[in-house]
Design a protein around this nucleic acid. Sequence first.
DNA 1: GATAGTTGTAATATATCACATTACATCTTT
DNA 2: AAAGATGTAATGTGATATATTACAACTATC
Lengths: 150, 150
Amino acid sequence: MQITSRFTIAIHILVAIDYFKDMDRVNSEFLAGSTGVNPVIIRTVISRLREAGILSTQRGSSGANLTRPLSEITFYDIYRAVDSVDEQEGLFHFHEQPHPDCPVGGNIHTALDGKLDDIQHVMEERMKTITVQDVADDVLKAVREKSKEE
Amino acid sequence: MQITSRFTIAIHILVAIDYFKDMDRVNSEFLAGSTGVNPVIIRTVISRLREAGILSTQRGSSGANLTRPLSEITFYDIYRAVDSVDEQEGLFHFHEQPHPDCPVGGNIHTALDGKLDDIQHVMEERMKTITVQDVADDVLKAVREKSKEE
DNA sequence: GATAGTTGTAATATATCACATTACATCTTT
DNA sequence: AAAGATGTAATGTGATATATTACAACTATC
């Protein structure tokens, strides 16, 4: 299994919105071209980012506005915004009907749930330490490296 | 998305094999009852554990033998054994066709891949610190708690 | 050595989900 | 009013997880 590409798409979108903010009309068509993803998917990802308060948009009018700088948008914010992992269900799919009358089956949740939460938690905490600005910086760096080579 | 239940099933199975080792014939039918999972699924999970060298089985003959104590089987070992996350693909599904000629699309992998690997890595490292024995201990504890209550 | 019990595995079915796509109502800008 | 956007519903398609049936291969026991 894999975490949905909505997550990397959202990061890509945010970097692009910032990168091209003064140069182009950054509409869903443009972002679809940059990401190689269908424009409707772009719009739904943007919808989720909007619902999460990360950016704002106007019906009919092109482009999106960030509500805060990229340096204040963490990977965790995006992960939550685009529902990379369902908040209720959790990262691990637990088999659903362990037998309650079996000593193991009847106690496996008690014994295991906390440990699974732990694992998910370290992952999410690490996500909180990385921001979209970190990505934007590295994109810029790479762009400059390439232009040097010519 | 969620990590396949094969992971929790495998942990459940290993705890049960150990717990019942002197009491019952722990065959796939028995484990299917304890987990609430189809016996064929049980056998395929056991197959993977066998391929990973965690236990051995004999065709025709009931039961499985652990090749090492539960205290030496980590969550990471199981995670790898049952292919919870494809080793090639990684935890995050990257959108597949970012546009190479776009400054953002052409550099997003360079900028993002290492960060995604980092996140996956902290999760996997935490998995290495938890063993199936930890679960078995907590199952036993819970069993004893419940028997006290009577 | 015949029988019953078991594992290993292929083949198929079903449900769910991710992503693509079409279509269109709604809104903004010119 | 016309052109260009967004928001979103509806539908299609492919991939994947799990369940299930079926059976060959093997072991233990009577």
